[in-house]
């Protein structure tokens, strides 16, 4: 009989996997960002549960940080980018939704097959956590590869980040180093988003300019 928090942990991890798959379905950027926010909340919950069950207080910090940055700040920022800069709201893809979904399944099967045998060596006695984490990393990577726009690629990167985080928790239940790594990764993503934000802003204003000039012609 697995202890209750571990069971809850498993389920939270499964929510992360579900949201990773669902993110392959979306064709509107806002919906993709919302799904990412839910996924991050599930990741934070996982961290919190591990902190509770294994008495690792520094993980509470990490969970709180995840909520602040990955659930609130980053999605907010991304939504703003979409809204303010008028990025067309559709996700452009190299693979159709159906192909993406099937590839998503294949990635889970792959990670189950690859990681399954070493899962028992993880610190957390949950056989599901590690394969799910690896699958989420791969799905994030796939999102990064298969979606055209910079902003959707950022979401892909963020999904990968969530997967890495989950894997870290599973393997070491997040000691000091991981906190730093998590922070660093988040900062990196923040920097990328800010960069895109700036660039798009520049492009948009250029566009506005050009349109205004053209309007004068008539």
């Amino acid at each position: 009989m697995t202890p209750l928090p571990v069971q809850a942990l498993d389920i939270a991890a499964a929510v992360v996997l579900v949201t990773a798959w669902v993110s392959l379905l979306h064709r509107r950027i806002e919906a993709l960002v919302d799904t990412y926010a839910i996924q991050s909340a599930a990741v934070a919950l996982t961290a919190g549960l591990v902190a509770y069950e294994y008495r690792a207080p520094d993980l509470y910090l990490l969970a709180g940080l995840t909520v602040a940055v990955n659930v609130v700040a980053l999605p907010g920022l991304l939504r703003r980018v979409v809204r303010v800069l008028g990025v067309p709201r559709m996700v452009n893809m190299y693979a159709s939704v159906r192909e993406s979904a099937l590839i998503g399944l294949a990635l889970l099967l792959l990670s189950v097959w690859v990681v399954g045998p070493i899962a028992p060596f993880a610190e957390i006695p949950s056989a599901g956590l590690l394969p799910i984490a690896v699958a989420v990393v791969l799905i994030g990577f796939f999102l990064l590869v298969s979606r055209r726009k910079a902003i959707t690629q950022v979401v892909g990167l963020l999904v990968m980040n969530n997967g890495v985080f989950l894997a870290g928790i599973a393997l070491t239940y997040g000691l000091g180093l991981l906190v730093e790594l998590g922070l660093a990764a988040n900062l990196l993503v923040l920097a990328i988003v800010a960069r895109i934000f700036l660039q798009r802003m520049k492009e948009s204003f250029d566009h506005v300019d050009a349109d205004a000039l053209r309007a004068l012609e008539g």
């Binding site: 792959l110 990670s111 097959w113 690859v114 399954g116 045998p117 070493i118």
Partner: peptide, 13 residues
């Protein structure tokens, strides 16, 4: 690479 690693090392589940 993942497939290779898995195929070379360790027996299947």
């Amino acid at each position: 690479l993942l497939l290779l690693v898995r195929a070379v090392g360790g027996s299947g589940p």
